[in-house]
């Protein structure tokens, strides 16, 4: 059993603009209305870098900053785990299109933004964080794999770790083979000990039980369509504020059992 305290949450996705709004929607205090994800320009980057930031970079930075601000912590001091199905889909499309053309020259920015750790690199530049940053990919299991990696860091190193789990959509023709329809990201500040900011305690173990669905049909469709949105069952449990055991999607042969206990 791996235990940690969630001290801050960042959320951005279709019809989910931030955690305070998302919390009310997930707690059924406000209706869910799906609309395209609005990705803000990354204010923490210098203007030249801000202009060139990909969708994945904008998303990861926005949710990371929201979660850490909510936890009232300094991002420069925190280790991070970035988890996504893959790198930025639009960037990948532009590269593959250029390489299939008669002019194969790539732009340097497009190439360095193609590495899967581009959001992690920009995060480090924007926040000044020199702590370790891990970059995990596990296709549809990416949220579960990221949560596991971050929790293991919290327990093994007895220190805080920020999970930044995000996915961005693909343009055609890639969308046909990887149908991620929009951008969705969730960030969790995880701590080894309780604090005044702690929202909930989670205790996680492997299980072969089936993962839980969300009753609201449009939220369940969102949960199933974007790997990072597999977090929605956990977020809904925290939003409702009660204690519960939930099952979060991970691998096809193994899921994560999460005992959630609210703090204060």
């Amino acid at each position: 059993m791996l235990t940690a305290y969630i001290e801050g949450i960042g959320l951005l996705g279709p019809g989910l603009n931030n955690w305070p709004e998302g919390r009310r929607i997930l707690a059924a205090e406000a209706p869910y209305v799906s609309r395209p994800t609005d990705l803000p320009p990354p204010a923490s980057l210098p203007p030249s870098e801000r202009r060139r930031a990909s969708r994945a970079i904008k998303l990861a930075l926005a949710i990371g900053h929201e979660a850490i601000a909510a936890a009232q912590l300094d991002p420069a001091t925190l280790a991070t785990v970035f988890s996504s199905s893959a790198g930025d889909g639009y960037n990948c499309h532009e590269i593959c299109q250029a390489l299939a053309s008669n002019d194969r020259q790539l732009s340097p920015t497009r190439f360095h933004n193609s590495v899967h750790n581009a959001p992690a690199g920009y995060w480090s530049i924007a926040s000044g964080a020199m702590a370790s940053s891990s970059v995990i990919c596990a296709h549809d299991a990416s949220f579960g794999a990221g949560l596991l990696e971050a929790l293991v860091q919290v327990v093994a190193d007895n220190t805080r770790c920020v999970l930044i789990s995000y996915d961005t959509d693909y343009p055609e023709p890639l969308r046909a083979v990887r149908p991620v329809p929009d951008a969705f990201g969730v960030a969790l500040v995880l701590a080894p000990r309780p604090s005044a900011q702690a929202l909930a305690r989670i205790a996680v173990s492997f299980t072969d039980e089936a993962s839980l669905h969300i009753a609201d049909e449009s939220l369940e469709r969102l949960r199933q369509s974007i790997p990072a949105a597999r977090s929605l069952t956990l977020l809904q449990t925290i939003a409702r504020g009660g204690a519960a055991r939930i099952i979060v999607d991970y691998l096809e042969y193994m899921r994560l059992g999460v005992d959630v206990t609210p703090c204060s």
Binding site: N117, E149, A156
Partner: peptide
């Protein structure tokens, strides 16, 4: 059939896997 992940942090990727496994 244990936990599995790809680590993709450019040219440090296959050193960082040792850290994940060790933890």
């Amino acid at each position: 059939s244990g936990p599995v992940a790809t680590v993709s942090s450019a040219c440090s990727s296959s050193a960082k896997v040792f850290a994940s496994a060790q933890r």
